[in-house]
Design a protein around this nucleic acid. Structure first.
Lengths: 302, 302
DNA sequence: CTTATCATATAAGCTAATCATATGAAACAG
DNA sequence: CTGTTTCATATGATTAGCTTATATGATAAG
């Protein structure tokens, strides 16, 4: 901050060097020197020191207006930086995987936005791989993905577990039970997500683990489309229980475990390991962790 | 000026500490220190120093915008002060006596305004006494009065001489000659200005000097009204030759010398002796003096 | 006319901020 | 592995800015 302007403005307001000095917690000669150095710098008289009062010259009047303005902007700047330092303000670019972004994030985000209304947010819903790339490219401040990422520049923070189950339409022959045998499932038409998706990866792992080799596979790029398609009887799928909670409650879809298997994965927050992040990121992470606790036990309704 | 902001902005633009230092004619460590002190002051990282390039953090972006703005305002301020220092800009409150203000000042002012278009002016037309008071009260920067003022806080600069002559209407018996005898004038109805006016003072001095004691005297508060009144045959008056030049050329009024007398007075510029005055005042005084030379010889047309 | 009082200016010495020089450390490129 | 680039750190020097002490100047009071 430019001290001399503040000193000048104070003197101009108080019309008295000594009292201005007092207000500024300095001595009167220091004020005199500062004023004079300003006058010398601009080559203009700023104050007319007549006996017992100080009067502004025309130059002084002009300087006062401008100096006030500049000092106000310093105030503003300091407030801005302080807010930012406290994480009360800023912009958070969040990259989230489909399942988390569409079915979990909204409620977490609502909490965060309520607590930090002056932090603006931008959500990108992408698959796991894209989120990781976005963070490495510094397009996102935080990411949330399924599973852990193994990259030296990325740091992952496991949040909570998610279970995936086989989804079938309400009237389906398998819909009556809680579990299904692999060979029962092999005969189904399968619907899966695109490669790069965490949900797809989970499906692939399940197929590999059980030796399942479904005859018919359809690939769709969004969880919502898959749900609608399963409802419409186009096939069965493996989805996060969180993604189909509503449909199950409504009796539109049913979910089954694969006998002898529990297909689980962990949602993790991801940060760039070396990049400086603003304080608001810490606050967001705190809200994430806090909400993870309440979501921990969320599983199938039985 | 706040050096650290300038340094930050330079680094932010160049994205390189060393080159910024070069541009600012300082060494690289000095730049590093300044940036760090800014970061400490705000408690926020401003620049991410990755190898071979410098990237702005969010705080840095915000600071950059605000700092740019503040620096621009400093520029503006410096330019303003410089203009003022050079007398190119400012405001000039001019107090002028009636005769000078109405009949001489306009052309001088035109010259001045052409030379210094960014200096604004305010003209107060008052009588000599009021001009002096206005300057003492610091309401005027410059005054122009008739005669010299004797006040310790006022400094007068004689400009040029002015002659006053007796004004009669065109058809008047005295209008045929160039001179008039005091006793011829004593019989006339006289019109004079109000007390406090330099023109009135000149008339009073003439009456005293010649022993003239006019029987009928009318007092009017403006030269223009007096001219119109003389034209209308209401009486005769004593006015500056400059105030009636047009009317004489048109043959509407005639002017006469009082035999054996030349009634002269000097127009003077007046400044407050102790008050600081802006540079534009000097320029105005220069124009005044310059124009005074060309006006010096202006007298009656014979 | 002298003295007291108030307000700013000046002088001298000290402190602390700021700078430059020299050097170190990290990250690449060849 | 070595040279180069670039920022960080350490240290001594410079200087700007502050304080204390005192002067000056203008008015008010005795």
């Amino acid at each position: 901050m430019d001290q001399s302007l503040l000193i000048f403005v104070t003197v101009a307001k108080m019309k008295n060097f000594s009292r201005a000095a007092e207000a500024l917690h300095m001595t009167q000669p220091a004020v005199s020197l500062q004023i004079r150095s300003l006058e010398n710098k601009f080559g203009v008289r700023l104050l007319e020191r007549t006996h017992r009062t100080v009067r502004l010259t025309q130059a002084g009047e002009m300087l006062l207006a401008q100096a006030q303005d500049i000092l106000d902007r310093y105030e503003e700047l300091a407030a801005m930086m302080d807010d930012l330092q406290q994480g009360e303000v800023g912009h958070l670019a969040i990259g989230a995987s489909y399942t988390f972004g569409e079915y979990v994030l909204p409620r977490i985000l609502a909490k965060f936005c309520k607590a930090y209304p002056r932090v603006s947010t931008a959500i990108s819903i992408e698959n796991t791989r894209q989120v990781a790339e976005g963070i490495l490219r510094r397009e996102h401040d935080v990411g949330i993905v399924e599973g852990e990422l193994d990259h030296p520049e990325l740091e992952t923070f496991p949040l909570f577990e998610d279970e995936l189950m086989v989804i079938v339409p309400a009237g389906h022959p398998l819909a009556c039970g809680f579990e299904a045998d692999p060979d029962e499932l092999a005969a189904q038409r399968w619907i899966v997500r695109e490669p790069g998706s965490g949900t797809r990866e989970a499906a692939d792992r399940m197929f590999a683990a059980t030796g399942l080799c479904p005859s018919a596979v359809m690939e769709l790029g969004s969880t919502q489309i898959i749900k609608e398609s399963v409802e419409a009887g186009l096939g069965v799928s493996l989805l996060s229980t969180r993604a189909v909670a509503k449909e199950v409650r409504l009796g539109i879809l049913a979910m089954l475990r694969l006998r002898g298997h529990r297909i689980r994965r962990t949602f993790s927050a991801v940060l760039h390991r070396y990049r400086y992040h603003i304080r608001a990121v810490d606050h967001f992470m705190a809200v994430l962790r806090e909400e993870s606790g309440t979501l921990q036990g969320c599983g199938p309704p039985w």
